[in-house]
Write a protein that binds this DNA or RNA. Sequence first.
DNA 1: GAAATGATGTGAAACAAATCACAAAAAGCG
DNA 2: CGCTTTTTGTGATTTGTTTCACATCATTTC
Lengths: 227, 227
Amino acid sequence: MKQITKSVIKNSLKRIFLYRACIVRLKLMGVEKVFSYTLANETGVTSDQVRKDFSEFSIKGNKRGGYDINDLLEKMEKLFHRNKDNNIVLIGMGNMGLALSKYSKFVQRHMNIVATFDIDPFKQKMRSGIPVYSMSRLKEIIERFKVKVAILAVPEISAQEVVDELIRHGITGIVNFAPVLLKVPPDVIINNVNLCDELESVIYYVHKQMKVNGLKNLELLYRDMKY
Amino acid sequence: MKQITKSVIKNSLKRIFLYRACIVRLKLMGVEKVFSYTLANETGVTSDQVRKDFSEFSIKGNKRGGYDINDLLEKMEKLFHRNKDNNIVLIGMGNMGLALSKYSKFVQRHMNIVATFDIDPFKQKMRSGIPVYSMSRLKEIIERFKVKVAILAVPEISAQEVVDELIRHGITGIVNFAPVLLKVPPDVIINNVNLCDELESVIYYVHKQMKVNGLKNLELLYRDMKY
DNA sequence: GAAATGATGTGAAACAAATCACAAAAAGCG
DNA sequence: CGCTTTTTGTGATTTGTTTCACATCATTTC
Ligand SMILES: NC(=O)c1ccc[n+]([C@@H]2O[C@H](COP(=O)([O-])OP(=O)(O)OC[C@H]3O[C@@H](n4cnc5c(N)ncnc54)[C@H](O)[C@@H]3O)[C@@H](O)[C@H]2O)c1
Ligand SMILES: NC(=O)c1ccc[n+]([C@@H]2O[C@H](COP(=O)([O-])OP(=O)(O)OC[C@H]3O[C@@H](n4cnc5c(N)ncnc54)[C@H](O)[C@@H]3O)[C@@H](O)[C@H]2O)c1
């Protein structure tokens, strides 16, 4: 029944996000249409890749005319369900939870943290505008705001029990900051963010690179890297 | 000269981190040797994959005897240069920077944030044990502690200028929290952590899953996901 | 309005990653 | 000691992803 669910973000989806960030910037600059090679240059991929990715997500442009920037954005918003607001809950108002609760980009992108939760009574008061509740009110809030997605920022040791509770109340998608592999049913999406691993990976590559220093062609190093 | 450098973490390396976390846990439980299928079960990959990954990083076990847990850890520490301490600097002591500076797992894993930096004079005092300096002392500190890796937690708008300065002073690896693609020379490793994208990806999959609900076989959904 | 041009969109080809299958080595056992 | 069992390590195969190549369409030009 319960199984380890791996982080599940396709590379093509990640690139779509890159393109969108770029498109948003171009729009602000007043640009009205954009070509696959423009996005390619800006994001460091090839123009073929851009078109293949768009093709995968059924995004179509105009032959010769490129992509109309407003149309493109509209299609993407639809793809990512950003026309409607997405209500999120955040569990664990420690260091990380507090930082995340203050992050304004989430709201800008229509992802609203409607409530945060903590077992520590000391933390159960308004902070940074978003209410902090005790865990006993989880069910009520999730139902009231029709929340499907949660951010988990509790200690490693509590992560599994909290996830179990979230799932019982109807959460089906989780961004997990605790460095543990959570066991969840197969219909629950988990995205693990492990900052230690991110840092260590960089250290690994930095050391690796220092070893091959003196090598003329750095291509060699990049060939076996993934983006 | 300067080019967009993409996040560059191989899937096999990510899995190695999973295995290690698992091995550390097993060691604490007193286990002394471990088999590829044990790690596989714990991490949700196949045992073939575990062995292939080990093979890629030249980690060898004993036929029939599996892997000696201490030997395995030692080899991994060496691989990730965790026998020696790694000195890190953190730029930007805002919400995110503050949370990161308080994160004890970094130290546990021999990654020491030796100093943090901010342009805001208000933030330039001791907090959470790690000193906060003005940007003018960047060069001095980087050189004194032989720092090669930086965590970047400054606003989007300042990210590029700060990166340029970091690189000028000898930084070659960066974990970047600002949602921008930084332009850096090809020998600098960038690892972008974009939390909005992480959240949005989950929302995307949650919605997608709700659409196919009623579908018997969830395998269909998982087939085109990547871990 | 036909020809040239410049872009998309997508099968085909090349490349990369994961899985399979099995030989080889080590350990246990009669 | 030789037979059986168990597990690693790695070529061979399959599956997945990216790049290539070009047909197709829209626009401009003459
Ligand atoms: N601080 C960071 O920079 C950072 C970085 C990466 C990962 N993380 C991870 O994020 C998680 C939180 O880290 P942190 O530094 O904010 O820790 P923290 O100890 O500051 O905060 C944890 C919070 O969770 C609350 N909590 C504990 N058990 C709970 C439960 N059962 N239900 C609800 N709330 C509960 C605590 O009261 C506390 O407020 C940890 O798993 C940590 O490993 C933190
Ligand atoms: N807070 C979050 O949860 C969160 C989540 C994801 C990403 N981020 C990203 O991380 C970065 C920091 O976010 P934050 O919420 O901590 O912002 P913040 O505004 O709280 O902190 C930014 C800090 O950087 C300092 N700073 C500004 N310009 C600087 C410069 N040129 N040199 C040195 N320091 C400088 C500021 O004084 C401030 O202390 C942003 O790019 C943000 O998009 C934040």
